[in-house]
Simulated assay, not measured.
Amino acid sequence: MDDAWDSNGRRTYLHDEDADRAFLKQLQRILRTLEWTADPDKLRTFGHAGSGEIIEIEPGGSDTSGHFLHHMKAFD
């Protein structure tokens, strides 16, 4: 899998919980304390102004329980 932080600036994690509304609200509260903010234009996406990094939450789909979390470096 082409998912390397050093070469592609990206990490992907799999989580067992469904990325439902309650989960996303709790995640947003936690991220807010670490200076991450919800992207007003992209669903399930958070950005960090200081680092420029991005977190995207991708639901696993109908045949999967859980979701993927993509953490990406800022690109110049």
Rank of each mutant, 00 (worst) to 15 (best):
H71M: 07
A38R: 14
I30Q: 12
I57E: 08
G47N: 08
D39Q: 08
G61W: 03
S62F: 02
L69H: 01
A4G: 14
H67F: 04
D76T: 02
A22I: 12
T64W: 06
S51C: 02
E17R: 06
Q26W: 01
E58K: 14
L69Q: 09
I54P: 00
F46V: 03
P59V: 07
E17G: 06
H48I: 00
I30C: 08
L69Y: 06
G66C: 10
L24W: 01
T45S: 05
W5M: 09
R21E: 14
D16P: 05
D18K: 01
L34C: 06
L27M: 09
S65E: 05
G60T: 02
L34R: 14
G50Q: 07
I30W: 01
G60V: 02
D20I: 05
D63R: 01
Q26P: 05
R29K: 14
G66Y: 07
Q26G: 09
R11V: 15
T37A: 12
W5R: 06
G9K: 00
R44C: 13
E58G: 08
D41V: 07
L43N: 11
D6Y: 09
Q28R: 10
E53R: 06
A4I: 15
H71V: 14
H15Y: 06
N8E: 14
Q26A: 13
P59D: 10
L24T: 13
L27V: 08
E58Q: 13
I55W: 03
E56A: 13
E58A: 11
R29H: 11
H71T: 02
S51G: 09
N8G: 10
S62Q: 09
G52M: 04
Q26K: 13
L14P: 00
G9M: 02
A38D: 04
A4Y: 06
D41S: 10
Q26S: 13
T12W: 04
D16I: 01
I54W: 01
F46Y: 15
S65I: 09
H71P: 04
M1P: 13
F46C: 04
T33G: 03
A38Q: 14
Y13T: 07
D2G: 14
D63M: 01
R11L: 15
R10Y: 05
L27T: 07
D6L: 11
H71N: 04
L34S: 10
A49F: 03
Q28W: 07
D2C: 10
L69T: 15
K25P: 00
E17A: 10
Q26I: 08
S51L: 05
D39V: 05
R32E: 11
H48D: 01
L34P: 02
Q28M: 09
D16C: 00
T12C: 11
I54K: 06
T33V: 07
R32C: 06
L34M: 12
F75C: 04
D2T: 15
R10V: 11
I55V: 15
E56Y: 03
G61F: 03
K25A: 10
S62Y: 01
Q26T: 15
M72E: 12
D6E: 14
E35A: 10
I30V: 15
L69I: 15
S62P: 11
D3V: 15
D18R: 01
D6F: 11
A4L: 15
R44L: 12
D18W: 00
Q28G: 13
D63Y: 02
S62N: 11
G47Q: 08
H67C: 12
F46L: 05
